[in-house]
């Protein structure tokens, strides 16, 4: 181990704390602003210390929404975001794990073409095919629905590749053993492969949940009804072009509520998060 002198160590600690301060400052301001009076903020006289309106602001944000005519309680938006994120995460894992299983453990005509068809989707995010996708979802009458919100975002190969890679490392002896025990392909998948994939699935779930919760452009396009808004779309609509009408404490409370679930997931499940991040390179 290379010895670090005391002075250099202090410098390292200081630089890291400066980094943490820079990273945390915008969020600190948001939390502070969400406890203050709108008039004070609108005048540019916001205090840098917590105000006394915490309960009032959060109650209004979660259960009532802004005072505008198109108000929508943020609690409902969070529910929409939650359903969408869960559908994307669970849906992607479910369809990917079975297709990876087929591609690794079976030989069948068109196996490689099918693999390539799925693999190529890795390259193109939804942003580059946004309007044609919108049109298809509209033709299928899936605008303003959870299916419309989640299905187009499930169409990607990351998870399939990951499971394929993992299955390749599973020793062949396991399959021989369960075959001797008389297990068929479905039994082997359910009793042996799924339990082995548990950590991979969990790591993937953490990443996909965060990505799903944070989706913006797609929900913005396909939700027209206020009660189908996700929180990311809702917060944008709260910032009115005429600044005077923006209710900043509610906007900031919404920002805090929008950050809470994914940040909690990152901090509480850090190991899985890091693993999922490194594996998917998202």
């Amino acid at each position: 181990m290379v010895e670090e002198e005391g002075f250099r160590r202090y410098v390292a600690h200081i630089i890291l704390w400066i980094g943490i301060a820079i990273v945390a400052f915008p969020v600190y301001i948001a939390i502070i602003a969400s406890t203050q009076d709108n008039a004070l903020i609108a005048n540019g006289q916001m205090s840098l210390l917590p105000g006394g309106h915490f309960f009032e602001v959060y109650y209004q944000t979660i259960f009532v929404g802004t005072s505008g005519s198109t108000r929508e309680p943020v609690g409902n938006m969070m529910l929409n975001s939650l359903v969408m994120a869960l559908l994307i995460a669970v849906g992607k894992i479910a369809i990917s794990i079975i297709s990876a299983y087929a591609i690794v453990y079976f030989r069948f005509p068109f196996r490689m073409p099918i693999f390539w068809i799925i693999f190529i989707t890795l390259m193109l995010p939804v942003e580059v095919r946004i309007y044609p996708t919108y049109k298809i979802v509209a033709d299928l009458h899936m605008l303003d629905s959870y299916a419309g919100l989640s299905l187009p975002l499930i169409a990607s190969a990351t998870a399939t590749l990951l499971f394929r890679q993992f299955f390749m490392t599973v020793p062949d002896e396991l399959l021989e053993a369960s075959r001797i025990d008389g297990a068929g392909p479905l039994r082997f998948f359910w009793d042996t492969l799924l339990p082995l994939s548990r950590t991979n699935m969990a790591a993937l779930f953490v990443i996909l949940f965060i990505l799903g919760w944070n989706q913006y452009l797609w929900p913005l396009l396909i939700t027209t009804r206020d009660d189908m808004q996700t929180i990311q779309v809702g917060i944008r609509k709260m910032i009115t072009t005429t600044d005077a009408l923006t209710e900043w404490p509610i906007v900031m409370a919404t920002a805090v509520l929008a950050m809470l679930p994914p940040v909690f997931v990152v901090v509480a499940m850090q190991k899985l998060f890091v693993r999922g991040l490194v594996e998917t390179e998202k």
Binding site: G19, I235, F273, V274
Partner: peptide, 11 residues
């Protein structure tokens, strides 16, 4: 230092 990863672009 890692938690801002989870903050969505619009936020």
């Amino acid at each position: 230092l890692i938690w801002p990863y989870a903050v969505a672009p619009p936020v």
